[in-house]
Computed example of a mutant assay.
Amino acid sequence: MRLMARMSHVIVIIPALNAAPSLPDTFASLEPAIACGLVSRWVLADGGSGDATVKLARARGFDVVKSLPGRGVQLAAGAARAIEGAGEGDWLLFLHADTRLEPGWAKAVKAFMAAHAGGEVAGYFQFALDDESAPARRLERFVAWRCAAFGLPYGDQGLLIPAQLYERLGGYRLMRLFEDVDIVRRIGRRRLKPVSARAITSAARFRSEGYLRRSAANLLLLARYFLGADPEKLARAYGRRKA
């Protein structure tokens, strides 16, 4: 009698810091994948929130990990917890706290995992903003071009990666900025593939700072990073912009 192969599951990891306003929508977008059995666990890595972030996460059944602040640090801490219970063939899905996946994403992820089972491939979602303005559409088109031309998705597009590949790569480095660029460069363009679903991110900061101004500032920081600037100094510069 032939034994059935074990179904691969997804473990979701979300880094969060004072993210209570956006988390309910993010959580709601994930719940159908739990109901259909695709997502087996979810982990929230909290960087010291002073709001209701942890309470909301625990109420939804999240495994909450306490961490020092810094997205790379939190992602690494959340992944370490997730991998403790990961089975052979399981995947990790890293998602920002202000990003929600569009309806139907679970079907797209199942198809992606089936197409790349046992392979050395990671996936990212199509970038979208919760803004219907022309500047938002232009930015979405630019991000699509950047991904196609350079294989450079950012963290707000999610990262779907086999747990074993994540471990072989050494995981996220303890960086407060550009941890997403660092890991996709180690994955490599040939091993990065798009998932046929959108990750919809809050456009609040773009609306607040201005699309052109924020995009230009982000590109300047990225250029400095590629030229060898210290990510810690860049993180401080990024933090001053948000203050």
Rank of each mutant, 00 (worst) to 15 (best):
residue 3 L to K: 07
residue 5 A to S: 14
residue 6 R to D: 12
residue 7 M to N: 12
residue 8 S to D: 13
residue 11 I to Q: 08
residue 11 I to F: 00
residue 13 I to Q: 06
residue 14 I to T: 10
residue 14 I to C: 07
residue 14 I to G: 03
residue 15 P to L: 14
residue 17 L to M: 09
residue 19 A to I: 08
residue 19 A to D: 14
residue 20 A to Q: 05
residue 20 A to H: 05
residue 23 L to T: 13
residue 29 S to T: 10
residue 29 S to I: 12
residue 29 S to G: 02
residue 30 L to H: 03
residue 30 L to Y: 00
residue 30 L to T: 08
residue 31 E to H: 15
residue 32 P to I: 11
residue 33 A to I: 12
residue 33 A to F: 13
residue 34 I to K: 13
residue 36 C to K: 09
residue 36 C to R: 12
residue 41 R to W: 11
residue 42 W to C: 00
residue 47 G to E: 10
residue 49 S to N: 05
residue 54 V to G: 01
residue 56 L to Y: 10
residue 58 R to E: 05
residue 64 V to A: 06
residue 64 V to P: 03
residue 67 S to P: 12
residue 67 S to I: 13
residue 69 P to R: 10
residue 70 G to F: 08
residue 70 G to C: 07
residue 70 G to P: 04
residue 71 R to H: 13
residue 72 G to H: 03
residue 74 Q to Y: 08
residue 76 A to I: 12
residue 81 R to A: 15
residue 85 G to R: 08
residue 87 G to F: 06
residue 88 E to P: 08
residue 88 E to W: 13
residue 89 G to L: 09
residue 90 D to W: 08
residue 92 L to R: 02
residue 92 L to C: 09
residue 93 L to G: 02
residue 94 F to V: 02
residue 99 T to L: 09
residue 101 L to M: 02
residue 101 L to W: 10
residue 106 A to D: 15
residue 106 A to Y: 01
residue 112 F to C: 05
residue 115 A to W: 13
residue 118 G to P: 01
residue 118 G to A: 04
residue 127 F to Q: 02
residue 129 L to A: 06
residue 129 L to C: 02
residue 130 D to L: 10
residue 131 D to I: 02
residue 134 A to H: 07
residue 135 P to G: 07
residue 136 A to V: 14
residue 136 A to P: 01
residue 138 R to N: 13
residue 139 L to H: 11
residue 142 F to E: 15
residue 147 C to E: 15
residue 148 A to S: 03
residue 148 A to L: 11
residue 149 A to R: 00
residue 150 F to V: 01
residue 152 L to Y: 00
residue 154 Y to C: 09
residue 156 D to C: 11
residue 157 Q to A: 14
residue 159 L to D: 02
residue 160 L to S: 10
residue 162 P to K: 05
residue 165 L to Y: 13
residue 166 Y to F: 10
residue 168 R to P: 02
residue 171 G to D: 06
residue 172 Y to V: 06
residue 172 Y to T: 09
residue 176 R to S: 10
residue 177 L to P: 01
residue 180 D to G: 10
residue 181 V to I: 14
residue 181 V to F: 12
residue 181 V to Y: 10
residue 185 R to M: 13
residue 185 R to Y: 02
residue 191 R to I: 00
residue 195 V to T: 03
residue 207 R to V: 14
residue 208 S to Q: 15
residue 210 G to I: 12
residue 215 S to H: 11
residue 217 A to Q: 07
residue 218 N to T: 11
residue 221 L to Y: 05
residue 226 F to A: 04
residue 228 G to C: 02
residue 229 A to C: 04
residue 241 R to H: 11
residue 241 R to W: 15
residue 241 R to A: 08
residue 243 A to S: 12
residue 243 A to I: 14
